[in-house]
Nucleic acid binder design. Structure first.
Length: 480
RNA sequence: CGAGGUGUAGCGCAGUUUGGUAGCGCGUUUGGUUCGGGACCAAAAGGCCGCUGGUUCAAAUCCAGUCACCUCGACCA
């Protein structure tokens, strides 16, 4: 690269098309979102990245309140005996649990697991709290951190410690639990669309991939720009599996002792990784406006000239008064340098204000998504920026949806399916997912029915998702 | 856990083949000129060459061990 920079921050990033993993890492590190810590696989989220997370939290929490959930907090440590009560759950999580063995210098009589997820502790509490059908449903959520000792890690996508929310609910019947499971899956899908500008597929996971201990697991999956799938939220119907393990019972109206039906659902800082990989381009990050910590950055041009800075600060105040998260960059750097830096950081809208603009009562406004430049009058600028932010959101969503549709094929044979998942999603028919007996019925092609050789070795690295939207088709994708 | 790669200044790297004063670019600090797409000049600061041991008069460099990180597998609600 022949471009010169006067800040280490301004370095070229890898070409997205040539080296997607490297591009992703570059974007994460060079946009000042996170850093590596000394503990392997643990991330440090820096203020810019955390700002995104705060906006995600706010907007998601608002949705949880609307669906009647309340926030609570449960312990970080889970005694080993408590964790062991649900057999499938233990088996699934055992390989990735971190253990506390000592308190100070004394060895503990019983090891403490650092929560990989909280069904177990929360189940134990629910067992105390729930006595009667009048106590149901219990609808709670907690925002917290969890630890999973992963073998390999990637920033935001899979870290040893991560931040998330986990919802835990208890209901009187299986049907109510199922309804809750689907309701929250829908909340996630709506959130992905309207806040993150990411189109997602809703689907049910295969038996092999479902949450350890769940009756059924549903997820939302998005396609990244390399064609791979990323799970961006899950919702589990736990049926009465955990209620039986943790003795969550209630006395029904007609005086019978019954087990509860529980659900759990979660989404994490992985969503940040997802939005980087869905929207980013060769210039760096592209943030969807609703989670952008800075929605509009104001760059005074030739700021040393009289009046420029003053006018720019007035404009900043006007933007903020309109509810726009705006910042001004008054640093003593060249204009070109600032353009590049804020583009890399993905700020949705850039506003340039120089002496010539002030003369003509206008500003130069540039959208991050298409880099189109326009000259707008200063008078109505805040209102126009607000509209523009919505346009950017819609534009990003449409672009991501277009990409996904382009990279999704419909398969009518195993060969097509296998070929398709190498670079995108595949639509294929799904019947029932029972252990190793899987059958595919062709529907879209309208032709014959055949059995799918799911036990072929080539298929082992394919992540299977079953979605059941309107057209009743099935989605398969190669996953991260 | 398998295969490959990398550890040298805040960041990116050269130097290791052939042992001999620790180098370059960017950034940082100071002063000045600039300022509408990655500015320029001048000066300065900044290093347990991942760690441990060995060979040697002498090790960033050779040998052995070890640790960490990265990529790809495996694994992963």
């Amino acid at each position: 690269m022949d471009k010169k920079g006067n800040d280490q921050f301004v370095q070229h990033i890898a070409k997205r098309s040539e080296d997607f993993p490297q591009w992703y890492t570059d974007v994460v590190l060079k946009t000042d979102m996170m850093d590596y810590s000394d503990v392997r696989g643990c991330m440090v989220i820096k203020p810019y990245g955390y700002g995104i997370w705060e906006l995600i939290q706010q907007q998601m929490d608002k949705r949880f309140k609307e669906t009647g959930h309340v926030n609570a907090y449960f312990p970080l440590f889970i005694p080993e005996s408590l964790l062991m009560k649900e057999a499938e759950h233990v088996e699934g999580f055992a390989p990735e649990v971190a253990w506390v063995t000592h308190g100070g210098s004394e060895k503990l009589a019983e090891r403490l697991a650092i929560r990989p997820t909280s069904e177990t502790v929360i189940g134990a509490m629910y067992s105390k709290w729930i006595q009667s059908y009048r106590d149901l449903p219990v609808l709670m959520n907690q925002w917290c951190n969890v630890v999973r000792w992963e073998k390999s890690t990637r920033p935001f996508l899979r870290t040893s410690e991560f931040l998330w929310q986990e919802g835990h609910t208890a209901h009187a019947t299986f049907e109510e639990a199922q309804e809750e499971t689907m309701r929250m899956l829908e909340v996630y899908a709506e959130f992905a669309k309207n806040v993150l500008a990411i189109p997602v597929l809703k689907g049910r996971k295969s038996e092999k991939e479902k949450f350890a201990g769940a009756f059924a697991t549903y997820s939302i999956e998005a396609m990244m720009q390399d064609g791979k799938a990323l799970q961006m939220g899950t919702s589990h119907n736990l049926a009465d599996n955990f209620a039986k393990g943790y003795d969550i019972q209630y006395l029904s109206k007609d005086g019978k002792l019954e087990y509860c039906y529980t659900t759990s659902w979660g989404s994490s800082t992985r969503m940040i990784g997802g939005l980087i990989m869905v929207h980013g381009d060769d210039r760096g990050l592209v943030l969807p406006p609703r989670v952008a910590p800075i929605q509009a950055v104001l760059l005074p041009i030739a700021a040393h000239k009289p009046g420029v800075l003053e006018r720019a600060r007035e404009l900043l105040a006007a933007l903020r008064a309109a509810g726009i998260r705006a910042e001004i960059d008054e640093r003593d750097q060249s204009a070109g340098w600032k353009f590049n830096q804020w583009e890399m950081k993905g700020v949705p809208v850039r506003i340039e204000l120089g002496p010539k603009d002030i003369e003509q009562n206008q500003a130069v406004v540039v959208r991050r998504d298409d880099l189109q430049k326009q000259f707008l009058s200063l008078d109505a600028l805040p209102a126009q920026i607000l509209t523009m932010l919505d346009d950017v959101h819609e534009g990003l969503y449409a672009k991501a949806l277009g990409m996904r549709e382009k990279e999704t094929i419909t398969a009518t044979s195993f060969e097509e399916l296998y070929e398709g998942v190498q670079h995108g999603f595949v639509r294929a028919m799904w019947c029932k997912d029972t252990a190793c007996e899987l059958a595919i019925k062709e529907k879209t092609g309208g032709a014959s029915t055949r059995n799918m050789p799911f036990d072929e070795p080539a298929f082992s690295d394919v992540c299977v998702h079953c979605g059941k939207p309107a057209q009743s088709v099935t989605y398969f994708a190669k996953a991260y």
